[in-house]
Structure formats: structure tokens, C-alpha cells
Design a protein around this nucleic acid. Sequence first.
DNA 1: AAAACGGGGGC
DNA 2: GCCCCAGTTTT
Length: 204
Amino acid sequence: MDLEELMRRLFELYPEGYTDGSRDPFFVLISTVMSHRTRDNVTYPAAKRLFERFSTPEEMVEADVEEIEALIKEVGFYRVKAGRIKEISGILLKEYNGRVPDEMDTLLKLPGVGRKTANCVLAHAFLKDALAVDTHVHRISNRLGLVETKVPEKTEIELKKIFPQKYWKHINLLLVKLGQNICRPISPRCEVCVLNDMCPKIIL
DNA sequence: AAAACGGGGGC
DNA sequence: GCCCCAGTTTT
């Protein structure tokens, strides 16, 4: 598999690069937590609406949790997430001087932040060489025959072995976009996929 | 390893 | 109406 060619085609397809929105670490963190098990076209408008009203940990801890719930009501698990947003904001203020940590081990201590979310923050907010594996990255990597495991953390390790490090931070968003539009979980649109000639699972 | 959390969008 | 979704936490 020519991974340089694979990345070249994805960058050509999605030239805006690795992030659509703000690189403010707090926005990246909160919007990523909001995105859990929720489609991007639902999550993103809700995150923008939330941040028009409250945009800092200080404002978030002062906010009425019911108002946060109302602002993000379309996303799944909105009650749990609203609580976590307040909880995370409080911890950031109390433990980290109001800043979002830029280390994996520290990010993982925040409630609702697992390896995927932490990697997204590291890659998209701090431009570090992190590789976030979500269901899209996992599914597409398997279809392309790049990995075989069903364990996301192993997928992360295997992808880091085969992709040049300079690409790691871009892989998540590029494959998420491909996964939403083309390489969908069900009925993938292989006939319009720029990778179809290098994919063992092509369906025409 | 598997279940629970959950409202909204696509079909 | 039914099925699935940018995961994480708990059992």
C-alpha cells in the first residue's frame, strides 16, 4: 500500500486540512466530548451555539447547568455531557490554572475524556503528533487492510507503525470525513471513492 | 468482553 | 417507526 499516495489523495479531496473549526483547546476539548456517539452535523452547530453563550471555563462553571443542557439538547447524552462540561471546567480552573492540559496522562484524568478525545485535543489543538482512532478510522483501516485488530488502541499502534509521523495528526479528521461521506458504515459509495483502486473491500 | 447511556437524523 | 451514531464508564 502506497500510504504517501493515499494521503495525497485525501488532502486533495479535503484541502482544508485537519480541522474545520477553532483550534482553541477548550473548544476542541468540549466539542469533542460533545461528539461522542453523535453525528458531526448535529454536534458542530450545538458546540458553536454553546460557545456563543459561554466560551471559557470561568463562564462554564458559572453557567446554569440547565441552560447548558438546553443549548446542546440535540446531541446524544446531553444531560451527561452538560454535567461533564461543568465538571471539566471546574477541574481545569482548580487544578490546571484554567488551561487545557497538553499531555495524554493528564487529559485522561478528566471525566468523559478517553484516549480518542485526548488524542483529538493533542492533535487538533496542540498540533502534536497524536493519532485519534474512532469508529471511522477503525472501520476504514480495516477495509483497506491496514490493520486487523478490533481493539482501537492496537489500531492506533499499528497505524503509527505504518504511517509517517508527519501524517498522524491529520488521519482522524480526513478519515472521519471520508467515513461520513463515502466510506460509510453501511452501503459505502465505493464508485466515487478516491481510494477505490487500492481497497480490497471495494464494492461496485 | 459486554452493557449502559440517549436524542436526533436518515431511510 | 426502526436503526445507527466523532466513546467512555461501569459491570
